[in-house]
Design a binder for these strands. Structure first.
Lengths: 151, 151
DNA sequence: CGGCAAACTTAGAGTCGGCTAACTCAGGGG
DNA sequence: CCCCTGAGTTAGCCGACTCTAAGTTTGCCG
């Protein structure tokens, strides 16, 4: 046996860590957006139907269906044919966490002086990449900004 | 002809716009990361070889090849078999824009009091979703924060 | 009740971003 | 000069996410 081929390739150090994280984040972004939207719809109208998500995300019904199947497989939603979409306990937890992050980021952007429109758009994209630590820093900045007034 | 079915479905209003943007952003995120990394490698070592990207992104050689083919198809890089990877003019432009955004976001996070490590990771994910307007707001905040000192 | 429209599902396809496995190419040593 | 190694390429696969097209189901209205 050729024991010589030991293989290193483990200590790819920093850069890789960053990008591995970037990739794994990607995996759950859509899921977070969906459970957030589902929770919204339920809060606003009592139930969430596929067509609500079709409008929300501007994709076809077929796509919504696929995605919901994946979410169901992953234990985030529960749904039966032709019935409204419901969140599991885990789905609700994820939705509420996402919503909190989203709100913090969005209000932080507005706090920075960004327009409503831009804050809405940018926070949508940013929320998935903001760590707990950064979130805390944003909250701290808003507290200090409020208490000390401008300049 | 049934002219009655006029169909609206065009003015899906705000939510859809936000998410359409989210999706199209995704398409170019990897491209931006790649051209940035390629520009870095060229700056640091004179040339960029596939293996540099293999390390940077912690993916296989095959994946790097695929991606580079796509970038070449999209006019961002130029490469011949077994030769180093070069950026086109457009690739260089994109790289420099990305790098600037990246630097602003990262230094802003540090300005907020986030740790080096977290700033590096979060900025990597966030940079692709930060609009010009938000970028300006970050720069403004840093200017004001610097000039007025803490509290 | 019959039928239609809207909501939903299914089938089939495509792109992107990843992988493994197996091959080719380029450049030193022995 | 031959061969080995490391870099690069190719082929084939998979899963996520999207679409179009075609079929089902539901619910309402006449």
């Amino acid at each position: 046996m050729p024991t010589a081929t030991v293989k290193i390739a483990e200590d790819i150090s920093l850069p890789s860590k960053v990008h591995q994280r970037t990739r794994s984040d990607h995996a759950s972004e859509l899921a977070e957006d969906y459970v957030e939207a589902i929770a919204d719809a339920i809060a606003k109208k009592g139930v969430c139907r596929g067509v609500d998500l079709v409008h929300q995300f501007a994709v076809t019904h077929a796509t919504v269906n696929n995605t919901i199947q994946r979410l169901q497989r992953d234990g985030l939603v529960r749904t039966e044919p032709y019935q409204p979409i419901e969140l599991t306990a885990e789905g609700r937890r994820l939705a509420s966490r996402s919503r909190q992050r989203h709100e913090i980021v969005e209000s932080f952007l507005k706090f920075l002086g960004v327009s409503e429109q831009t804050a809405a758009i940018d926070s949508e994209g940013m929320e998935h990449h903001v760590s707990k630590e950064t979130l805390q820093a944003m909250k701290r900045a808003m507290r200090q900004g409020r208490s000390s007034g401008s300049r």
